[in-house]
């Protein structure tokens, strides 16, 4: 692993750490969106009392940024969890099993994979009450085939190296071989990468839909997406209310993607 990759790993790791910390802490910070409004300090530039300035309604941007993590943090974790856990299991079984079991799982995965994700999410939002949790759940399910495909490829490669057979032959329980020897010992880098990716996708969908305004998080509750949406009414000389959350979105998504990739690469190097 090169020097730049190592620096990238540390930097992206720091971003992930900050987001995770904020996501854990945010729910415990008392915040009443209505009380935060104060029209005597509208669009203030960043200062000591308002580190990132205030928005059109005089609300502290830093505070809304922190509270905004609530909108995607738990849903993102849930989606990543669903996609990675179910996807890894399905992928391992699809790579290991034979006969009808394999056919059914492969067919189901292929079916899920043909659904266009965002379109399907919007369809679900049209029919059901659109909460971010629901969106994340659907996103997690729709990512199952993506995770399953990489895991399956890995399992098939291990199969052709007799890695799996050797463990079965040695007397290990096949469930234990799948869960421990394959998924835990061999596939964790893949799972880390995919989890980071799905988390980033949920942030993308949540902010995107919140930005568009009808699904996702509604004002006055803060979301990075609806904070960016203020761009529509902001005067050109006061860009920070949308610039700050937009930068946060970009930083977080690329941070998570980079962390997932670099950490996985490091893990794969170690396993190899």
């Amino acid at each position: 692993m090169g020097r730049f990759s190592r620096i990238g790993l540390w930097l992206s790791g720091a971003i992930v750490l900050v987001v995770v910390l904020l996501g854990v802490v945010a729910p415990f910070i008392p915040y009443e969106p209505a009380d935060a409004v104060s029209y005597d300090r509208v669009l203030e530039v960043p200062s000591v009392s308002h580190v990132l300035g205030t928005d059109e309604q005089g609300r502290d941007i830093a505070m809304r940024l922190v509270k905004g993590t609530e909108a995607f943090f738990l849903p993102g974790l849930m989606a990543a969890g669903i996609a990675v856990l179910v996807g890894a299991l399905a992928g391992a079984v699809a790579g290991y099993a034979t006969g009808p079991v394999r056919a059914v799982i492969v067919g189901a995965l292929q079916l899920l994979d043909t659904l266009p994700r965002l379109v399907f999410i919007i369809l679900v939002c049209t029919i059901r009450n659109p909460s971010v949790t629901l969106i994340a759940f659907v996103a997690g399910v729709l990512f199952i085939p993506t995770v399953a495909a990489v895991i399956r490829r890995k399992v098939e490669a291990l199969g052709s190296e007799d890695y799996i057979l050797a463990h079965i032959a040695h007397g290990f329980h096949s469930v234990w071989v799948i869960l421990y020897h394959i998924l835990w010992l061999q596939c964790w880098p893949i799972m880390v990468r995919q989890a980071a990716y799905v988390f980033g996708y949920v942030l993308f969908v949540e902010t995107g839909l919140s930005y568009l305004g009808d699904y996702g998080v509604q004002e006055p509750d803060p979301s990075w997406g609806n904070m960016v949406a203020q761009v529509r009414s902001l005067p050109p000389d006061a860009p920070w209310p949308w610039l700050v959350p937009a930068a946060a979105i970009v930083l977080t998504i690329s941070g998570f993607l980079a962390f997932g990739n670099l950490a996985a690469r490091r893990g794969e190097e170690a396993i190899r």
Partner: peptide, 9 residues
């Protein structure tokens, strides 16, 4: 890595 809508803005 920026979402397309952010890029668009």
């Amino acid at each position: 890595a920026a979402p397309a809508f952010v890029a668009a803005i």
